[in-house]
C-alpha cells in the first residue's frame, strides 16, 4: 500500500481533537436528538436505500456532511496550508479498502463514530461488540499487509 511513514505520538492533540468530536456528537443529540454516526449520515445521501430516515433528517445530515467536508478549509485559512496527510497510493488497494469500508459499515450499521464514539457513550453492548470486532479486524489487516505479505 506504500511506504511506512513514521508518526509522532500526540496524546494531547489527539485528546483535544477527540473532545471536539465528542462535543459535536453532543450537539447532534441536543439539537436533533440523533446519533452522530457518519455511516448513517452518509447513507442519508444515498436516498435509494430504504429506512435511512425521513425528509426531516435529510436536511441536517446534508449540512453536517458539508461541514465535515469543509473542515480542512478552516485549517487552510488559519494556517495557510491543508493538514498533513500520507495517504496510501496503491490504486487497487484503496479501491478495495473503500468498498470494504462502505459495505461493512452499511451492513453493520455503524463505524468508528456511530458504534465507537456514540455507541460507547451510550454503553451499548451491541456497539461495544462491533468496536471490538472492527478493531481486531483492522489490526489483523494492517499486520497482514505490513508484516506478512
Amino acid at each position: 500500500m506504500g511506504p511506512v511513514v513514521p508518526t509522532e505520538f500526540t496524546p494531547w492533540l489527539s485528546l483535544f481533537g477527540g473532545v471536539l468530536i465528542g462535543l459535536s456528537a453532543v450537539m447532534v443529540m441536543g439539537l436533533f436528538g440523533k446519533i452522530a454516526g457518519i455511516t448513517g449520515i452518509t447513507k442519508g445521501l444515498t436516498t435509494a436505500i430504504p429506512g435511512t430516515g425521513g425528509p426531516n433528517d435529510r436536511g441536517w445530515r446534508l449540512s453536517f456532511l458539508i461541514g465535515l467536508v469543509a473542515a480542512p478549509l478552516v485549517v487552510l485559512l488559519t494556517t495557510g496550508a491543508f493538514p498533513q496527510q500520507s495517504v496510501p497510493t496503491n490504486v487497487w488497494g484503496m479501491a478495495l479498502a473503500g468498498l470494504l469500508v462502505g459495505f461493512g459499515t452499511s451492513l453493520g450499521a455503524g463505524c468508528t463514530s456511530g458504534h465507537g464514539v456514540c455507541g460507547l457513550a451510550r454503553l451499548s453492548p451491541r456497539s461495544a461488540a462491533a468496536v471490538a470486532v472492527f478493531l481486531v479486524a483492522a489490526v489483523l489487516a494492517t499486520t497482514l499487509v505490513r508484516h506478512v505479505i
Binding site: T42, V101, G104, T105
Partner: peptide
Amino acid sequence: APLLTGAAIFGMGWGLGGFCPGPAWTSLLI
C-alpha cells in the same frame, strides 16, 4: 451476524486504507 460480519469487513478496509467514513469525507478537499 450482520453486525459482526459488517464490523469485520469494515475493520479490514480500515486497516488496509487507513480511512474510516468521517475522515474520508474530511480528506476529500485535500
